[in-house]
Design a protein around this nucleic acid. Sequence first.
DNA 1: CCTATTACTGACTGAACGTTCAGTAACCTA
DNA 2: TAGGTTACTGAACGTTCAGTCAGTAATAGG
Lengths: 221, 221
Amino acid sequence: MTEAALSLDHAKFRRQPEVRPGQILDAAVKVFTDRGIAAAKLEEIATLAGVSKGTIYLYFHSKEELFREVVRQKVVPLLALADEGVTAESATAALRASLEHHWTYMDRDDAEGWVRLALLELHKFPDLAQFYRDEVVNRSNAVLFGIIERGIAAGEFRPIDADAAVMMIKGILLTHVIWCGAHSPNPAMRAKPRDQILHDITDFVLHALRPVTPVAATVFE
Amino acid sequence: MTEAALSLDHAKFRRQPEVRPGQILDAAVKVFTDRGIAAAKLEEIATLAGVSKGTIYLYFHSKEELFREVVRQKVVPLLALADEGVTAESATAALRASLEHHWTYMDRDDAEGWVRLALLELHKFPDLAQFYRDEVVNRSNAVLFGIIERGIAAGEFRPIDADAAVMMIKGILLTHVIWCGAHSPNPAMRAKPRDQILHDITDFVLHALRPVTPVAATVFE
DNA sequence: CCTATTACTGACTGAACGTTCAGTAACCTA
DNA sequence: TAGGTTACTGAACGTTCAGTCAGTAATAGG
């Protein structure tokens, strides 16, 4: 009786310790970005990964440690690409390329979720926030900063506090990722083609940075 | 024995049904903005309001209904002021005034919490999100939209998709509220004086909107 | 003063969920 | 193929928390 009651229903589970961590991390990415850190259920992650809840604890100490590992292995590597596009000859071209790059790499199903996590919940994990800031945010900001400084020096952009400009650009980008995402409550934004949005952003930013009297300068020369 | 065990410890509670809802709402604002919707505990709201958990249910059906009422009574009235500054003679002055107004009314302890809620958590409660959108977001956006259209018509601003421009401006404002708030992981932003930030934002936005060849136009006339 | 009514309390309930662990299946070695 | 080891399972546990309710204190009316 006991044996019958306890016997598993011949579920086809395999022992594959090499791939389990990866499967769990993939599932965790999806669930964390869908639900947020606090609302993510280990049961759901386990089901999605095709394992049982207990298996997660064979590879990760806790839910928080699992999240930490997700950031380390799934987010940071993406951002290693943040330096692309800087080699363009003019600062304007570099900025265009960088904006397009940011927008493109954020054009993923889970981008909206990541932005929400980063802005909303990450501050509740101070060490993770610091780690994320060092590895992801600062690196990406430095690229934009360099482009803007270069543009100012070359006379392509007007004199402006480059740090402040970076924050403006980041603010526009991040909010638009959310507003254009699947969970956006704004139907008008969701309906707009993504390249139209990128065009609008690029247009706005370049106009904000352009010298005050480029034509006049030409006229007066 | 039973009587002794059950008797209250002479806590000095008073019956004041008129003020209870207000006290509870005030406490709820604080806790909701501090913790977020899901993580807010009714017990904490009750303690902060100086009542017991049960009392909340005398005045509100549920946690969600309580949150709805917080939005209705604490947020919407603030936004009734969103139309100020529009009466300025020029669109530029109106936009300056509107930005300053937005920035000022967001310069509150709970502003950061509200932005986080609205931008990042509200979408999990679809009907609440819709309510918030109708009552708060659309109303505020319409004001900015009107100013920009007016500026374009008057030749103060370059031709631009006014809807898109509104989203850029909102994106900058909202992210800066978060980044300058108490929970910001960005020390540099937190250190900056608030009026400096407002100045940077206004400068960036006005330059993004100004006509392409204002000086040239003058020169050529 | 006594009684009815209203305001309020806080222990309790039930559900959800992170974490544990006794037990079972798959695999390995000899 | 027996015996040992490792991977895995899922029921059970402990905690947290929204929501309930039987009981108690304040107040109003007679």
